[in-house]
Design a protein around this nucleic acid. Structure first.
Lengths: 164, 164
DNA sequence: ATACTGACTGTTATCATATAACAATTCTGC
DNA sequence: GCAGAATTGTTATATGATAACAGTCAGTAT
């Protein structure tokens, strides 16, 4: 896996084709293991989501599909694929942007925590170990049972701050 | 201020009229100090947002306004009031619910971090000291400049878990 | 092979959330 | 009172998401 560890500087520097093929390979594995079908459509949507490290809106995906085919698919087509991919932990939804992004490590189920640059729009998935403990601690103290976590930190990445 | 410290059990137990009047009084103060106008409409929208500790959708607010008056206001009316209230730090937007909730401590500007019960739908604003340090630390390590934070933890509050 | 079954995808219509653009009104300082 | 700025009203539309039902396809049992 072409892991991006120093995420912030990465988008312009890495072999992105490798990211995509790794993500698709991992997806095959995950679906195989779960006994679910990664159909052509679902695979294609996942591939489109992975075209960049920027969250993509469902209608962006529809636009791309419309350009590739001659017929424009209807929204439910892509939303259902996205629902499936989310259920399998292959993509995360970014609530603050109404958008979707490929999961960096779908091998184990987890919540996505993100740093999102408002300039280059790249979203960096944080390792669970960074924010999760604070959340668990708070929840335990207050007797709250956590079911899902939305952690989306917006700002400027190193590169964009230095450029400005 | 009728502070709810053990937030999770609070919604059924506190003097909510006090919450509302405290919130409105605080809002007057905040606007006074900022030199901006808390108009009748803005005050009314804030009051509606504070009708409960549940995040309210903009269209919910429009419905209530329509019931109170005889004329239904158009969406921009309430969205503009909400924008103003957000700018002044009097309400927070909950991205994962497309909804708005009154800020528990508008005296100083801050990001809202929430625990949100999926059953009773009450949202509890966390003290900044709980999650913020973890976020700041991560951001600093990665050279990321934080501008806004979306932290929305969904699950079950104590009361609802015990009831189930 | 054939028919059955459930999963998947297509299609139409509609709902839900949010904003752009411009007009009318109201407030404030002069 | 008046001019300019801020606020609110109004119309239209953009954007994101889902309900409901019809058609198609893959895998299985016969």
């Amino acid at each position: 896996m072409n892991k991006i560890t120093s995420l912030v500087a990465a988008p312009c520097q890495h072999d992105h084709a490798q990211c995509v093929s790794d993500a698709l390979a991992a997806a095959e594995q995950v679906c195989e293991r779960a006994g679910v079908r990664l159909t052509t459509l679902r695979r294609r949507v996942l591939e489109l989501v992975w075209q960049s490290h920027r969250p993509m809106g469902a209608y962006d995906l529809l636009d791309i599909l419309a350009r590739e085919d001659d017929r424009r698919p209807a929204p439910p087509t892509v939303y259902r694929a996205l629902d499936f991919l989310q259920e399998q932990g292959l993509v995360h939804r970014i609530a603050s942007l109404n958008a979707f992004i490929g999961c960096a490590s779908p091998e184990h189920v987890h919540q996505g925590h993100f740093l999102i640059c408002r300039n280059c729009r790249v979203a960096f998935e944080l390792d669970q170990s960074l924010i999760q403990p604070a959340i668990s601690k708070v929840a335990e103290q207050l007797g709250f049972t956590v079911e899902s976590e939305t952690v989306e930190i917006a700002g400027l990445c190193t590169r964009c701050r230095e450029a400005a």
